[in-house]
Design a protein around this nucleic acid. Structure first.
Lengths: 153, 153
DNA sequence: CGGCATTGCTTTAAGCCTAAAATATTTATC
DNA sequence: GATAAATATTTTAGGCTTAAAGCAATGCCG
């Protein structure tokens, strides 16, 4: 294996370890402090960015998860009154999912705590380092998306 | 929210997006090319670093997953003859899990393909950037572990 | 109009994951 | 040595995840 390949593999293993660690702690925190889960948080986050609601298929597209997945999460959030399914006029197959007002209030609370929690978790990362790494990741993500476009043609 | 907090939050969102994206592609690749999954790969990887085998509890400790989780994955790998449970002399509660010779051969194949795949996936990351990011991540991980030690006391 | 492919969503089967309970065995204490 | 506490693992219940199948409803095309 070339040195370059070794450097890239090491980077990947570190990325995976760090992100998995933070994500695990985040899951614990969501459960402990908000009695919820990361997938539920992700769904509510997406809906909060679209106050008019999203069709189930749009939501699974945004979150890059399967249709059936969103169905289950929506079922449970709906049971708790945090989201609601609204029929789409003119298409009886489709459903619009959106936050209820209770859901919007609850998500605002969770989102604020989440930001504070992340800031605290990354306290040892200087703003300069954060910007530098974010820029590198952004450059990488942009290149990857570009390739996907080409592959999809 | 302070600027520093914004920088850290943005870093976290980028990290999550990039790692999730690569991880998803990796899962697809493992299924497509090797008819396996990332958790199975992780288990076999850990066992390959301990040719003498690991007790179930050691394995769940190394992988940072629950005991019950490892039980299920070991069951399935065992059905396929890739790993085997060996009784531990002197302690009839414990079981040593280790790769069979077929498992070791199969994992060697998977691991090599995995390295190539990662190198290709990160082709646009220069070795210099890879080392720089890995170093920052390493510094962060070291600080975090240090804190855990303190918290655990 | 009538058939038929497509679209939108849900259901199902199987694996992954956790916390908590259950089981079996070992260790410590009296 | 008997009993209790601790340890190693499995089982269970419930949620997340996907691919594939199923069910309506829509849209296209002759």
């Amino acid at each position: 294996m070339s040195d370059a390949a070794k450097d890239r593999l090491r980077l990947w293993l570190r990325l995976l370890k760090v992100v998995r660690g933070i994500e695990q702690d985040l899951r614990d925190e969501l459960r402990r402090a908000h009695n919820t889960t990361l997938p539920r948080f992700d769904v509510m986050s997406a809906l909060s960015r679209h106050p008019e609601g999203l069709k189930m298929s749009q939501l699974s597209g945004v979150l890059r998860v399967s249709n059936g997945n969103v169905t289950g999460i929506a079922d449970r959030l709906s049971e708790e009154g945090l989201v609601e399914r609204i029929p789409v006029p003119g298409d009886r197959r489709a459903m619009m999912l959106r936050l209820t007002s209770e859901g919007a209030t609850e998500f605002a609370r969770q989102a604020e705590a989440h930001q504070d929690w992340i800031n605290e978790k990354l306290r040892d990362v200087s703003p300069e380092d954060a910007r530098a790494m974010a820029a590198r990741l952004q450059a990488f993500a942009a290149k990857s998306e570009q390739k996907e476009q080409v592959n999809a043609q």
